[in-house]
Simulated assay, not measured.
Amino acid sequence: MNTTDKHNDRIANMTFSSVYPMYVKKVEAKGRTEEELQQVITWLTGFGNTKIRELIDKKVTFHQFFQMATLNPNAGLITGLICGYRIEDIENPLTKQVRYLDKLIDELAKGKKMEKILRKKEA
């Protein structure tokens, strides 16, 4: 799916710190914890809790955030619809990475089991 350059630029320049409180609110409203949220972020990005807090404090953009991340090799297993877009059809790499995060957080908020959220390839 083609997203517009304007859409991609807006996502790239959005700060992670501006969205993080909304992530926390979303998962806590559904009975999940901030610790579980951080576990999901760590799985996707490789960032530990201290690094996540540091990036929030530095007010990094999503562009900077994902530039520093080491994306989980199983991130490509994240598929489906999020925010009206089919993840596997998004062509812009950064927009796709942000939608990966959105999808994982959505699944957490919907009560999906952590083992299912943190995708593993079948052996």
Score class of each variant (00 low, 15 high):
33 T>F: 06
49 N>H: 13
41 I>H: 06
31 G>M: 07
35 E>F: 02
34 E>G: 03
58 K>A: 08
19 V>G: 07
55 L>T: 01
33 T>L: 05
58 K>C: 00
23 Y>V: 07
31 G>K: 05
40 V>M: 02
49 N>E: 14
58 K>G: 00
51 K>G: 01
53 R>H: 10
24 V>M: 05
22 M>C: 12
37 L>G: 03
44 L>D: 03
35 E>R: 04
32 R>N: 11
44 L>V: 08
37 L>Y: 03
26 K>P: 02
22 M>G: 14
31 G>R: 04
22 M>Y: 15
18 S>W: 04
25 K>N: 15
53 R>E: 14
44 L>P: 01
23 Y>N: 12
26 K>L: 13
34 E>W: 03
56 I>Y: 03
52 I>M: 05
30 K>I: 03
26 K>F: 11
36 E>C: 02
27 V>Y: 02
50 T>C: 00
20 Y>C: 14
23 Y>H: 13
22 M>S: 15
46 G>Y: 12
30 K>M: 13
38 Q>G: 02
38 Q>A: 01
40 V>D: 02
26 K>H: 11
20 Y>P: 14
39 Q>C: 08
59 K>F: 00
40 V>L: 02
44 L>G: 03
23 Y>E: 10
38 Q>M: 07
40 V>I: 09
52 I>E: 08
20 Y>T: 12
19 V>R: 12
46 G>H: 10
45 T>E: 05
33 T>M: 05
38 Q>L: 08
33 T>N: 08
32 R>Y: 07
57 D>W: 00
58 K>R: 12
31 G>Q: 05
27 V>K: 03
19 V>N: 08
30 K>S: 13
39 Q>S: 12
49 N>W: 06
40 V>F: 02
26 K>E: 12
30 K>D: 08
18 S>R: 11
32 R>S: 10
20 Y>V: 14
30 K>R: 13
39 Q>W: 01
48 G>K: 11
30 K>Y: 09
59 K>P: 00
18 S>M: 06
18 S>G: 09
46 G>S: 10
26 K>Y: 11
44 L>I: 09
21 P>M: 06
30 K>N: 14
36 E>A: 05
39 Q>E: 15
36 E>R: 01
34 E>V: 12
36 E>Y: 01
